[in-house]
Design a binder for these strands. Sequence first.
DNA 1: GTCCAGGGTCCCA
DNA 2: TGGGACCCTGGA
Length: 276
Amino acid sequence: MAILATSPEPVVLEHSGLSLRHTFSCGQCFRFVPEGDGYAGVAMGRPLFLKQQGSQTLFYCSKEEFEALWRGYFDLDRDYEPAHRLLAQDSYTKAAMEFGHGLRLLRQEPWETLCSFLISQCNNIPRIQAIIDALCRLCGEPVEYGGRTFYAFPTPEAVARQGLESLASIRAGYRAKYILSAAQRITAGVSLERIAAMETEEARRAVMEFDGVGRKVADCFLLFGAHKWDVFPVDTWMKKAAPHHGGQADGRGFGKVAGLAQQYIFYYARESAKKY
DNA sequence: GTCCAGGGTCCCA
DNA sequence: TGGGACCCTGGA
């Protein structure tokens, strides 16, 4: 594959406990897709190809870049064991956890997360991916990597420069005005980083001031873009799964690891449903 | 061809 | 508090 041929020696991680498949398929992020025998995607403006063989995970980037960006992005410095022990006490979350073993909660950027989940509303995952990809191609910075051109997620400024007519080309439907409005709000001075740094309740209130952001999108922003593990986004899948686990419909029973529980349950419920 | 649902939100009665 | 509208697709 072209990417491999021109990449430097990869950074190799042994026995990290990380599963790329579960981490990228569980629905938390939309920009890493299967590529050859691994995955390719862009985050924080940097493209990356990575793959797993045996007990090894191979990151095709420099050691410096791995330490500066990807170690944090994959949340590799956090010990998931205490959370796993807690979730193993409930038979349903235990099964969900075994199903999605190796899933890591990515530390995604606030703006990309907010935008992605604005697009997610009343939409399915393949189409969410297609719309985000179209948005990046429309106004994201091109970045060369492994002989190919990738597109960074556009900045709020770049999105704000697009008119509603231009944004119509990404086929986001009624969500386009929410994306534009959010971009304008941020370029006018509202800081998502500042909101992400607030306590959960205050941050939730602040992000819900954005047009098109209700409780669900706000909670996805808090969990995936602000890395607040006590947040439990409730969507149609979580409502379906609620009768089966002991964490209550709003996830209160899972306490400070509710977010991780949510991701295991969401992934498990959705993948199980595909079989029928 | 039509109908419906897909990681919701908003508005109005 | 409940229900319809909102854009657009893919599958039934």
